[in-house]
Amino acid sequence: ACPVSGAERTSQEIWESFSQCFTPAVKEVVEFAKGIPGFQGLSQQDQVMLLKSGTFQVLMVRFCTLFNAGERTVTFLNGQTYPLSTLRALGMGSLLDAMFEFSEKLGSLGLEPDEMALFMAVVLVSADRSGISDMWAVEQLQEGLIRALRSLITRRRPDDTALFPKLLLRLPDLRTLNNLHSDKLLAFRID
């Protein structure tokens, strides 16, 4: 992370930076999806529909490591770190508050990187099914991924029987985040 940025960047520049960080992150989710076993076996239309519905939620999981609950700072993917107070002044308060709350809940589960990756795959294929042409294929893919996630977690922590259900409870949290915040506005400078 870079040192906290202060007065040398204008509000507009910070907002542009925040907006721009989503572009490479979305592209990474598309590449991630292509690597999920079975995802490219879906029709291209269904792959696109799941990505459009689920990418925001995958990004919420991906971004939760950028939130420092102790310091109350957020690190953007370009390396800039800002205190929450600065970002609130730009009007990002409600989205960031929700992301802080979500990242604390998910962080408390202590997932390993491979568990987090498999959880992100489950999040993506559990996204809204409006517009999906082959529901059965998507459900089969989802069931397989959930089984794999359960197996990985219970094998690694056989005594923590509450962990997997707690993890699945994050799915409705993500849907709520999506419904409340995906209509937030971004601004990209046109040179």
Partner: peptide
């Protein structure tokens, strides 16, 4: 003065995904 393209996060995500799949067809 700077000009900005403004869109929702959902629309931006949708746009990137559509571009990516069109490029790879």
């Amino acid at each position: 003065p700077k000009t900005h393209r403004v869109m929702t996060l959902a629309d931006h995500i949708s746009h990137i995904i559509t571009q990516d799949f069109a490029r790879n067809q």
